[in-house]
């Protein structure tokens, strides 16, 4: 693997088609260096402008959440929340529907995260510590299952839960979430477990620990970061999920936060929407997610494309 990446650049250089004329022009002199510096500066400015484009919707959500609807709908946007207040947030909190939705989201998410972490951790132990018959098939199944789209399953899942009387039930939805998050979590934890050498455990056993003791004293503490990262990943998935929840949680009392937020804007074709409150609600849903996301982002990216980046 390493030899491949080392060999490639040389091959690539040979392929570069060098014209004698261009060689003469780019004679690295002081003017060239200055021009390069100028271009670097220009590119940096473009990058900052692009950053503003990407961040603008997030900024706009927070800024609008602080302004009264009268200002928001006056026809002239106010780009900075001068004279803002937390009134919209207060209105959202006082609305009867926010707290039940929050409670539902928390219930579903906590069940899903706990179940997923436990089951995925056990499975990750199995595939990284044992060579057993069927291991490859299990890994293969896990990898394919994580690609299955909710959109190709939700009707059947709805029918299944309906026959079990689990529609509008936190346990039913949490079960579906657990299953959909387990595959990627197993895959992520597998890397962490494999990173703790089995030798460590064995030397502890030589020193007189039982296997269980060795595991809980040596391996488990080393796995904590992996468990946290996987837990946060599962949290984000369950907290943000919309598609399956839309099908399963049909009654108003059973709404999770994303469904509640959607119901809020549904009337936006008419003038009935109070955008200040909608933005306050969105901010409330988004802020915990953004914080958690920033914690695990690096691991998630490398987990998804690890095979490709490492070559």
């Amino acid at each position: 693997m390493a030899s491949q990446t080392l060999a490639a650049p040389e091959r690539a250089i040979e392929n570069v088609n060098v014209k004698p004329a261009t060689r003469a022009v780019t004679n690295p002199g002081q003017r060239g260096a200055q021009r390069r510096k100028l271009f670097k500066g220009l590119r940096s400015i473009i990058a900052i402008l692009l950053a503003l484009v990407w961040v603008f919707p997030v900024y706009w959500m927070i800024s609008s959440s602080l302004l009264p609807t009268a200002v928001l709908e006056s026809g002239t946007p106010r780009f900075f929340p001068w004279g803002g207040s937390l009134d919209n947030y207060e209105a959202v909190f006082e609305m009867g529907t926010f707290w039940p939705a929050l409670r539902m989201s928390l219930t579903v998410t906590i069940i899903a995260v706990a179940a997923c972490l436990l089951f995925a951790f056990l499975a990750a132990l199995a595939i990284s510590r044992y060579h057993f018959k069927g291991r490859t098939s299990f890994v293969l199944a896990v990898l394919f299952i994580q690609m299955l789209p909710a959109e190709g399953l939700f009707i059947a899942q709805y029918k299944m839960l309906a026959s079990l009387n689990l529609i509008n039930n936190a346990l039913g939805l949490a079960g579906l979430y657990t299953a959909s998050v387990i595959p990627f979590t197993v895959w992520m934890l597998r890397g962490f477990v494999a990173g703790v050498p089995a030798d460590l455990e064995e030397s502890a056993m030589v020193d007189g620990c039982t296997r269980t003791q060795a595991f809980f004293r040596i391996t488990f503490p080393l796995l904590a970061p992996g468990l946290v990262a996987s837990g946060v990943y599962a949290f984000l998935q369950a907290w943000n999920e919309f598609t399956v929840a839309l099908v399963i949680m049909q009654s108003e009392e059973a709404r999770t936060l994303p469904l509640w937020l959607r119901a809020f804007v549904q009337a936006s074709a008419s003038r009935a929407t109070d955008w200040g409150q909608v933005m306050a609600a969105s901010t409330l849903v988004a802020v915990p997610v953004i914080i958690f996301f920033l914690l695990v982002q690096g691991r998630m990216t490398s987990g998804l494309v690890a095979g490709a980046v490492k070559g």
């Binding site: 670097k40 500066g41 590119r43 940096s44 400015i45 990058a47 900052i48 692009l50 950053a51 503003l52 484009v53 990407w54 961040v55 919707p57 997030v58 706009w60 959500m61 609008s64 907290w239 943000n240 919309f242 994303p258 937020l261 959607r262 809020f264 804007v265 936006s268 955008w275 909608v278 933005m279 609600a281 969105s282 901010t283 849903v285 988004a286 997610v289 953004i290 996301f293 920033l294 982002q297």
Partner: peptide, 30 residues
């Protein structure tokens, strides 16, 4: 690009990436 600009761009992209889909949709509808 220079390090400072890179950091700004990365933070901008990260914030957009972190937005929950439904929250992002309400903002775009707005």
């Amino acid at each position: 690009i220079v390090k400072g600009a890179r950091l700004v761009l990365q933070v901008g992209l990260l914030l957009a990436w972190a937005m929950p889909v439904v929250a992002a949709m309400t903002v775009w509808l707005w």
